Amino acid sequence: MTIILASTSKARRALLANAGIAFEAVASPIDERAVEAPLLEAGVPPSEIAQALADAKALGVSVHSPGALVIGSDQVLDLDGERFVKPVDLADAGRQIARLAGRPHHLRSAVTLARDGVVLWRHLDTATLTMRPLDQAAIERYLAAAGDDILWSVGGYMLEGVGIQLFSAIEGDYFSILGLPLLPLLGALRDLDAISN
Rank of each mutant, 00 (worst) to 15 (best):
L183G: 00
R132T: 09
L69F: 05
I71M: 10
L39H: 05
P87F: 15
A101M: 02
A27Q: 11
S7E: 02
L182Y: 14
E48Y: 06
E41F: 08
R122M: 02
G147L: 11
D148K: 11
M1P: 10
V119Y: 00
R33Q: 14
R115T: 09
H64G: 08
W152V: 02
L185E: 14
V61C: 03
D89Q: 14
L166T: 05
A98R: 14
S196T: 12
P181E: 10
P46V: 02
A169S: 14
L90Y: 02
L186P: 08
R12N: 04
A68W: 12
K57D: 08
A144C: 09
G94Q: 00
L166W: 02
D135F: 07
R141A: 07
I170K: 05
L120K: 13
L129I: 07
P45A: 13
L129P: 03
M131F: 02
L113Y: 05
P66Y: 07
E41C: 06
G147Y: 12
A22Q: 11
A146K: 12
R190L: 03
A169M: 13
W121N: 09
Q51K: 13
R141L: 05
A58C: 06
L159H: 04
S168L: 12
V118D: 10
V154Y: 01
K86I: 10
S196A: 06
A6P: 13
V76G: 04
T112R: 04
D116Y: 05
A114R: 01
A144H: 14
A101V: 11
D149F: 00
V35H: 05
P104W: 07
I170V: 15
L90M: 12
S73F: 02
L53H: 08
L183W: 04
